[in-house]
Design a protein around this nucleic acid. Structure first.
Lengths: 230, 230
DNA sequence: TGGAATGCATCTACACCGTAGACTCTAGGC
DNA sequence: GCCTAGAGTCTACGGTGTAGATGCATTCCA
């Protein structure tokens, strides 16, 4: 016969293929749908075989976060650091909207691993943004401060936006109305009043405005002390 | 005999007691240690009995987040909204440091429930902060913008800080050094260089500075347009 | 050419999980 | 006395991650 069926579903495996289909599974069916057995089934393999490409389930999750973060492009030599940070912010936001089910991983995986032991791919953004800022003239110390404020805000915004986001726009309003109607009017007057505003959340604009405030504030504060960069 | 053993471990149950011990279990042994069986064991009850106080595991998790958020005090009538927001930020930060294992719940639970259907306790901060801002003179619309920027930044900071936080301070440095040493020097020059700075992260100061920037920026931007509040 | 060794795929098994459904037991009302 | 309602318990089902043994194919060396 021919070589062992490379045809169809049983192409040769490697870590990337495994992670990629794991990501697809998460994207389409949610995080809790990702089990070794389900993944094995998706790859038409024995579940045990996957342990060759991921030490355990946690490693699989780490791999997925790495895979997703690799989609984020950063150019550490761009002299216009503010523009660059702004672009990165929007890119990461879109990435999150493209993979909403992965966001919990993005924010929780690092909580259970000391910084230095994290998958390298997840540290790349940190390193590159530091590089960008230092290149732009910041003292390393201050670069770290800026990074923290910036990335903190960015992650916070993404979480915030996703918390208000529901898949279908129409259903969004409906569900919101439905849900909000449930709230006791006595205890939640403002929330109820703001229902229509809540319903059309322009995430990109809101993010952009926040970033503007933060960046100009940071730049001013740091250069005001005669420390660095512009 | 006496009444059915109220003595010792078998005090009368109610939802609060169940949630409280669940929280203790999570605090002391981590999120994944919280199973119906383990919790039943901690309460010296049959696991099935818990379903009287929590519809299912998800409801249990929601209850825990509610319990924790209830520890947060907000005074919506304080005229000094900036000071109030600043205090809340620090309080929430301390709350997170006191219950680090609960933080993943705080940030991920809302992702899987439309806003209006969330446990009321978790919506209280939103409602009260809106109240605070409106009381201070903001238009409801703008109050929502301020809330989003503020709360987003706050959550982002907490996540950021916890990601760098390791339980024992001494071990922190050791692990950091150990971990960072693992990083290829070629690819992570800045991260390695900043190791000592990373090691002593003054979270409160960093949070305070970010909040300052954000609040003054927000106030300026909004009042600059002649829209509201001081 | 005949092993021996090496790696991959598969199978079985164990301990755990959430929870549906049936069962027992107890307290109270009549 | 019995009846009912509800709380507590037990068993069982279908799922989970993963250790360890087993089968299979290939490659390497004598």
């Amino acid at each position: 016969m021919s070589a062992p069926q490379d045809t169809d579903s049983r192409k040769r495996l490697n870590r990337e293929v495994v992670l990629q289909t794991a990501l697809e599974l998460v994207d389409s069916e949610g995080l809790e749908a990702l089990s070794m057995r389900r993944l094995g089934q998706a790859l038409d393999r024995d579940p045990m075989g996957l342990y060759r490409y991921a030490a355990n389930r946690a490693d699989l999750l780490d791999g997925i976060t790495e895979l997703v973060l690799n989609e984020l492009a950063i150019f550490p030599t761009d002299p216009d650091w503010q523009a660059q940070l702004r672009r990165i912010a929007h890119d990461l936001r879109l990435l999150a909207l493209r993979h909403p089910n992965v966001v919990p991983l993005l924010v929780t995986r690092p909580l259970s691993t000391p910084l230095g032991l994290r998958p390298l791919g997840t540290l790349r953004p940190l390193e590159q943004i530091l590089g960008l800022l230092i290149e732009a003239g910041f003292e390393p110390n201050n670069a770290l401060h800026v990074y923290r404020a910036y990335y903190g805000f960015l992650y916070g915004h993404i979480l915030n936006e996703l918390q208000e986001f529901i898949v279908d726009a129409e259903e969004n309003v409906a569900l919101l109305r439905l849900g909000l109607h449930r709230l006791p009017a006595r205890d939640f007057p403002h929330l109820r009043e703001l229902a229509p505003v809540l319903a059309d959340y322009d995430g990109a604009a809101e993010l952009d405005e926040g970033i503007s405030i933060l960046l100009s504030g940071l730049a001013e504060r740091l250069t005001g002390r005669g420390v660095a960069a512009g």
